[in-house]
Amino acid sequence: MYRHQQLLLALAVLGFGALASAPAAAAFQGNAYTGQNAASACQLSIPTTSTQVRPKATGFRNESATDSAFAICGYTNPTAGAVKTFILRTASMDGAAHTFNCTGVVGNAGTGTPQAYATKSITTTADGMAVSTSWAPADFGIESNFGATFPSVTCTLPPQVAIISTVSYADVDFINTP
């Protein structure tokens, strides 16, 4: 029995020595992102009985031939970190290019975090390929990131245009263990 205890003690000392001599874990900063189909991320900003604007499997679509609609899309923060950019992906559905405005909002109402707004003009391509439009801190006069905020984008969605998806990126500290 005594020999067995000595062997266990020797193994424990060797194990501790190996841990003590192992290199320290390195920390680095990377990106985390979350993407969402616009069918669940977007809705009508001004409720209406129009059935021409609705979520579909391929996004949030304005299927009207003549009427624009106000659509709003909310973003989630992929981590507890600070959101550094958010993206709206849109596409034409009728083979024509369309130009419209979308306004991004950062800051959380009622929390003391100042709210800021930035409007961008978006032009979809006639070929139906998705166009990505991003909002970064500089668009709002902010230096580094938006903090722990939940941005949103409101658009005047023209007829025959779909919002395909929303994506938000945040800074994350990772620990790299060897």
Rank of each mutant, 00 (worst) to 15 (best):
A71F: 10
D67V: 14
R54S: 11
G74Y: 07
A65F: 10
T76E: 05
F86R: 00
R61I: 05
P78E: 02
A71H: 06
G59M: 05
G81L: 03
A65Y: 13
A65W: 09
E63S: 14
S50G: 11
F70T: 05
C73H: 05
S64D: 15
I72F: 10
A80R: 05
A71E: 08
A82H: 03
T79W: 02
F70S: 07
E63N: 14
N62T: 11
V83P: 00
P55F: 11
S64Y: 12
T66A: 15
D67M: 12
P78K: 02
G81W: 00
G74L: 03
S64P: 08
E63Q: 14
I46E: 08
S50N: 12
E63F: 14
T51V: 10
T76C: 02
A69K: 04
T79V: 05
T51A: 07
A71N: 08
T48L: 12
S45C: 06
D67K: 09
P55I: 12
S68C: 06
P55G: 15
Y75S: 01
S45H: 12
S64C: 14
T49F: 14
F60S: 09
P78N: 01
I72M: 13
P55W: 08
T51E: 05
S64M: 13
T48Q: 12
Q52E: 15
S50F: 09
A82W: 01
A57G: 07
D67N: 14
E63K: 06
I46Y: 10
P78L: 01
P78H: 02
F86N: 00
P78R: 01
P55T: 13
G74T: 08
K56I: 11
V83C: 03
P47R: 05
T49I: 13
P78V: 02
A80D: 10
S64L: 14
P47K: 03
N62G: 09
K56F: 09
Y75C: 01
N77F: 06
P55H: 11
A80L: 11
T79Y: 04
T85V: 04
F86T: 00
S50R: 09
V83N: 01
T49A: 14
T48K: 05
N62L: 12
T85E: 04
I72E: 12
D67L: 15
T85S: 09
